[in-house]
Amino acid sequence: MGRFSDFLIALGFMKKKVNILCVGLDNSGKTTIINSLNPNKVDNGMIVPTIGFSIETFSKSKLNLTVIDMSGQGRYRDLWEHYYVDVDAVIFVVDSSDKIRTCVAKDELEQMLNHKDLKKRKIPILFFANKNDIEDSMSVADCSNALGLNNVKTKNWYICSCNGLTGDGILTGFNWLIGIIKKILI
């Protein structure tokens, strides 16, 4: 980044590029949530399980966002780490109606936090407790407990409940993330 472009960004003339990595178990709703954030996407109800990954680029809140939507399926989870190096923020999606697998989610989270490329870096993590519309789904507090978030001391994190299908709650979490990013980067 040249000095000049930093300057332009500070003045708000040029949008800064931000890399966001979106992870979480399969079927948790990552692609659904990213689509609802993406102003270029029309909802055609055609969301299929992601194979590998998919990169979405769009602008929002004066930032150029590159969101890497990873697949949550077991066979692709090893691939997440390839994208840790140059991320500015992480979105971690949990299916709050899937109590049984929260321990798997917790496990994946710990592995990620202990990865050499992320461990030392102060990057913000946004947790979505998704699918809050489903009956019997866990509350934010339950999710937070199940994931052991209270023990996460080294990172700046925030958890919020949301509904990927209607978009409820997504912006609350997203705005928090943007606030942090702008503070760190600019």
């Binding site: 990954f53 998919s54 990169i55 939507d69």
Partner: peptide, 12 residues
């Protein structure tokens, strides 16, 4: 290895 991981990107 793992080349199938670009599947979704290509489908897109």
């Amino acid at each position: 290895e793992d080349v199938i991981m670009v599947t979704s990107s290509l489908v897109k």
